[in-house]
């Protein structure tokens, strides 16, 4: 017998975006307020886990055909790439740069390469958590 979990699914659909938005907020706010790549990544994967709880794993895999191992690798690449990029400007490894840039739509924006590094962290954390959960979850089936 299949239980009807329509309430859960409906709620998930709404809550999911709030959580993801919150996590994205956490990620971007990290440099000024509590948050950052780590907790942001954990939050995002929390949202994905909720999705997996409400629906089943295969569906999620179909909707989000992401190989989280590759995501982990991309995250690591981001972190190392940002760090190594400093070498091109003849400064020590992992020297960050920041400044105000005039962007087409956003106007005068403060940009920081540390965000790119944090993005790497963010990806790795999502990749790692999801890989673990997916692997363990699929093993149980």
């Amino acid at each position: 017998m299949k239980t009807n979990d329509i309430i859960l699914q409906a709620c998930t659909k709404i809550v999911l975006f709030i959580i993801i938005l919150f996590s994205v907020h956490m990620f971007f706010a990290g440099h000024y307020e509590p948050g950052g790549g780590f907790i942001g990544g954990l939050m995002t994967s929390g949202a994905l886990v909720l999705l997996m709880l409400a629906f089943d794993m295969r569906t999620i895999k179909k909707i989000l055909p992401i190989d989280y191992k590759i995501l982990t690798a991309i995250g690591l690449l981001f972190a190392v790439g940002t760090a190594a990029g400093a070498l091109f400007f003849n400064v020590p490894f992992l020297t960050h740069a920041f400044g105000h840039v005039d962007l087409p739509i956003l106007g005068d924006t403060s940009l920081h390469t540390a965000t790119l590094f944090d993005l790497g962290v963010y990806f790795v954390v999502i990749g790692v958590t999801m890989t673990i959960i997916q692997t363990i979850g699929e093993d149980g089936e």
Partner: peptide, 10 residues
Amino acid sequence: GKNMVNVILV
């Protein structure tokens, strides 16, 4: 940055 923990971390 203003979040000292995060600035130290990254």
